[in-house]
Simulated assay, not measured.
Amino acid sequence: MDTILGPLYTAVSWIIVQFHKLYSLVFDEDSGWAWGLSIVSLVILIRIALIPLFVKQIKATRNMQALQPKMKAIQERYKNDRQRQSEEMMKLYKETGTNPLSSCLPILAQSPFFLALYQVLNKIANNQSVGVLGSDLVKSAREAHIFGAPIAARFMDSADKVEALNAGLTDVRVVTVIMILLMSASQFYTQRQLMTKNVDLTVKTPFMQQQKMLMYVFPVIFAVFGINFPVGVLVYWLTTNVWTLGQQMYIIKRNPTPGSLAYKQRQEKLRAKGKLKEDPAEVEARKAVEAARAGRQQPKRMTKAQRQAAAAQAEAKKAEEQKAAEQKPSMTKEGSESSQAPRSRQQPKKKAGQRKGPQRPKHPSKK
């Protein structure tokens, strides 16, 4: 791995050293402030470079949300044919110009820098030169403390290893636990904000269930792996979580997903300020609904006696209707009998000798 990521080690260490020189003008060059702010600045620089990918991630996420009903229909239609299902999915992605991997681009692009920083801090903890960090800078960074915890220390380090870094085990564990909790909480709130404010809740899709599951899974993953991260890596990851949270809040406020809670709130604010151009038909329909609601009469409250009288009247009306329904079949039967009576009359008998049909003329007899 060192051979593959060697150039990245050099790049990450060089950026940290440049920021360290800048902050050494204000703070002590061996202090945790100089080295800690250098790591924070590294995060900010990386995240600024990743803004175009973040924009693509937002667009890809929205496209995936919009395609979820169609994707679900394809899965139901070809649930017994996996190959055809995959072909139809790829066809759908191609027609809509959607790439499912676009939502993972910022994480994938940031991962090499995270691994490089982890290895750089790991080598600093082992007192090894890395990249442009020589022995003097490694010693300075190794012994720099952030709130009493060395940058290279971990929660799982032994007491002897922590003492070698001129620190106490209690201080290291308190600082790392607080940072792990803040890191997990920021991750949870970021995901929760996305689920509650920037998702179209009118469409229930499997994508929403996946996002809801990740909202609880990611903080647990950070907590488990965080106990093995050096303090410097915790600073890096906490900073990138806070940056993501702020960036997402800005996007949700400025350009929320249509149909989401944030979108409705933004539409209401624009409408109140008169900056929203609405369709006249929608305005008339809304006014008609409001007028109907305003003119709707509320039912009057009745006393107990009035309620009893109304109930008795309803019972009497019901009894009359039932009686009329019972009499209706008998009347129908009588009417049918009377209609059949003329048919049963006997036809008058014909006189004897009367023939049916026209009579044939008699031939004259021959004389």
Results as ranks from 00 to 15, higher is better:
residue 10 T to Y: 15
residue 12 V to P: 01
residue 19 F to T: 07
residue 26 V to T: 09
residue 30 D to T: 12
residue 30 D to E: 14
residue 42 L to K: 04
residue 66 A to D: 08
residue 67 L to S: 01
residue 74 I to K: 05
residue 74 I to L: 09
residue 75 Q to W: 01
residue 76 E to M: 05
residue 87 E to D: 06
residue 93 Y to P: 00
residue 96 T to D: 06
residue 97 G to S: 01
residue 108 L to M: 14
residue 117 L to D: 04
residue 118 Y to G: 06
residue 120 V to D: 07
residue 126 N to K: 15
residue 131 G to T: 11
residue 160 D to Q: 14
residue 166 N to D: 12
residue 187 Q to V: 07
residue 190 T to F: 06
residue 211 Q to I: 05
residue 212 K to R: 14
residue 217 V to M: 15
residue 219 P to D: 05
residue 220 V to G: 12
residue 224 V to W: 08
residue 238 L to W: 05
residue 241 N to T: 01
residue 248 Q to T: 10
residue 249 M to R: 14
residue 254 R to I: 04
residue 255 N to H: 06
residue 264 K to C: 03
residue 271 R to A: 14
residue 272 A to V: 08
residue 273 K to A: 13
residue 275 K to F: 04
residue 276 L to K: 05
residue 278 E to Y: 02
residue 282 E to D: 11
residue 288 A to P: 03
residue 300 K to F: 08
residue 301 R to A: 15
residue 310 A to M: 15
residue 313 Q to G: 10
residue 323 K to N: 10
residue 326 E to C: 04
residue 340 Q to R: 15
residue 342 P to C: 12
residue 348 P to N: 02
residue 351 K to H: 09
residue 351 K to P: 10
residue 354 Q to R: 14
residue 360 R to A: 13
residue 360 R to N: 10
residue 366 K to Q: 12
residue 367 K to V: 07
